[in-house]
Design a protein around this nucleic acid. Sequence first.
DNA 1: ACTGATATTGAATGATTATTCAATACAAAA
DNA 2: TTTTGTATTGAATAATCATTCAATATCAGT
Lengths: 212, 212
Amino acid sequence: MNVSPKKIGNLRPEEFSINHQKLIDATIETIAKRGLADTTIAQVSKKAMVSQGYANFRFKSKENLLLSSLKFLSDEYKNSWQKIFEDSRLDPVGRVIKIIENDFSSKIANRNKIAVWVSFYSEVKFRPSYLTICQKQDEIYSSQMEKLITEINNITNQNFLSPKEISETYHSMVDGLWQRILFDPKNYSHEFCKALIKKYFKNIYTDEKRFV
Amino acid sequence: MNVSPKKIGNLRPEEFSINHQKLIDATIETIAKRGLADTTIAQVSKKAMVSQGYANFRFKSKENLLLSSLKFLSDEYKNSWQKIFEDSRLDPVGRVIKIIENDFSSKIANRNKIAVWVSFYSEVKFRPSYLTICQKQDEIYSSQMEKLITEINNITNQNFLSPKEISETYHSMVDGLWQRILFDPKNYSHEFCKALIKKYFKNIYTDEKRFV
DNA sequence: ACTGATATTGAATGATTATTCAATACAAAA
DNA sequence: TTTTGTATTGAATAATCATTCAATATCAGT
């Protein structure tokens, strides 16, 4: 057998995770390029430059590799909005603006990553796992957002729309716009999406000048 | 060979289309239940109660069967909103209300059909043919909607939000809410979704009492 | 009843792909 | 140097599926 393994040798946890992360990155890229259905271990491991057998050995199964990739994205997303909620220098309106900008930043709302999200949304098979991995964080995000809107409502005396209504509207718009970024990136630029959402807020909080 | 074919015999176009439609219905059900990736000709034809070979013979290929199913949904959707735009008894606001009710009717926004839409959305990037089927109708729907909003803006003197902004916000909310119906049907009932969107319009058109 | 045309079957084929595993390489310890 | 444990390979296996096609059924017209 013509075996020429990687020259990394006896790995410690840290180096070990290089291959781990390389495989996850390759998985995300492959899902984005070919779709969840046409993502094969062969393609992923080729892109990650490890052998096919290794990918399976590391992640135990293809399913587990896919779910690990979802988990990676979910954590990355959580970290990005958590930072904003924890940033004590921001006032409520400043926080909302940062949230909007984060949800349409090129790190978060790029087509590769959206493609992965939507792939998991759409595959019934993964729905239970999706809920396990993401539901908790989704709930925290929503409830933090609602609290934030409550503060702004109190400051501004806007009370026709409840915090829950505004928050639900926001989240559904984000989901809808992410989907549109996928198949019509020309018309749905990050700038367009951010402007649309800010206009929504500007209309609600007419006295607040920062929703440019 | 133990052959026991259907007793329908020498079919005329009308009867012929029974099997055709049975296969399409079975495809939609199967996609909703098992996902696009795990939808096999074997399962679909079993559910439609025809042989595996027949499904392929009728539709030439699996891909074509999938496309036909998408086309069916797309046409059904178009017919439902087209009727509303053509109904001369409705005034602009009445029309918008009907549009909202249609978008969250149990015929249109049921979980089977949403599952199919989302499945195709997620693959649109790799299969331009999916886009071809829906894009044209989406554009017509959007432009009709924009015209409608223009009329209402004129009647009401609401001019802070442009027709395009309102229309885009509406469509992205619908997409987002459909997605949520899939995952969390308990919290995202048709009534909840309709109420949320009507509240959005009520907030814009404060004098209009019909957005209950 | 026979013939031709169309409808329908179901088993066989071939391609794709996840998963397994015995073989090999490497690094550090002894 | 030898040993030992871990990392990694790549070929073999087995399962799943779309697609094909020869065989069979049914019916309309003669």
